[in-house]
């Protein structure tokens, strides 16, 4: 094989391999998350100049314009509490108490990282909108089957959830992997 051809082959293969590595580590995945709290994953350096190139690239792709963790902590779940991938053909319950923050919300996103179209134009539950039981706990339904209250609609496709904690309490700030966060329990699938 001539030298030129070998050089071209090495370049093409190198470029393809390099782009594949970026796609695999940053674009396809949810990115490198430093901490896990049950199904909820977060990074200590989101939005911060201290974040490394992988976190910065991942945030640019999956959470552009995220605030730094002093202001807001973002947790993302792509699985339920048992570790199974979130799937819109199944029903889920998010069960727990209000996380320690001035304000919180849980929002569903499609695999394209945008809000999921649904008949009632509802995309989240939050500290303001969630209906609680007498003991202060709440249970929210996630899935494509309609519910009257505490419902986060999805399509019948894979999805993810983002839990936002605005002005998180000191306990969450100091131990974000030990925060008391709602669990995600899978129900029936169809």
């Amino acid at each position: 094989m001539k030298f030129g051809l070998k050089l071209a082959a090495a370049l093409v293969a190198g470029i393809a391999l390099g782009l594949f590595a970026t796609w695999a580590t940053v674009i396809r995945g949810a990115g490198p998350n430093a901490l896990s709290d049950g199904p909820w994953r977060t990074s200590l350096t989101t939005g911060s100049a201290k974040s490394g190139p992988y976190t910065r690239a991942s945030v640019a792709m999956h959470g552009l314009l995220a605030l730094n963790r002093d202001e807001t902590i973002y947790y993302t779940a792509t699985t339920d509490s048992s570790g199974a991938a979130l799937d819109g053909t199944c029903a889920y319950d998010i069960v727990g108490h209000d996380p320690d923050a001035r304000w919180w919300s849980i929002t569903a996103y499609g695999s394209d990282d945008y809000l999921i179209p649904n008949p009632v134009d509802r995309y989240s539950i939050s500290k303001n909108s969630v209906i609680r039981a007498a003991d202060g706990s709440f249970s929210a339904s996630v899935g494509s089957a309609a519910h009257v209250q505490n419902w986060i609609p999805t399509s019948r496709a894979p999805f993810s959830l983002t839990l936002r904690l605005y002005n998180p309490g000191t306990s969450v700030q100091s131990e974000p992997a030990q925060a008391s966060l709602p669990v995600i329990v899978k129900g029936s699938c169809s």
Partner: peptide, 22 residues
């Protein structure tokens, strides 16, 4: 040589992504 090119492309695209997205 292929691996060196791959590493350079990976690093370059990693650093370029935030700028491109912004």
């Amino acid at each position: 040589a292929t691996l060196v090119v791959a590493a350079l492309v990976h690093a370059g695209s990693l650093f370029a992504l935030p700028w491109l997205v912004m």
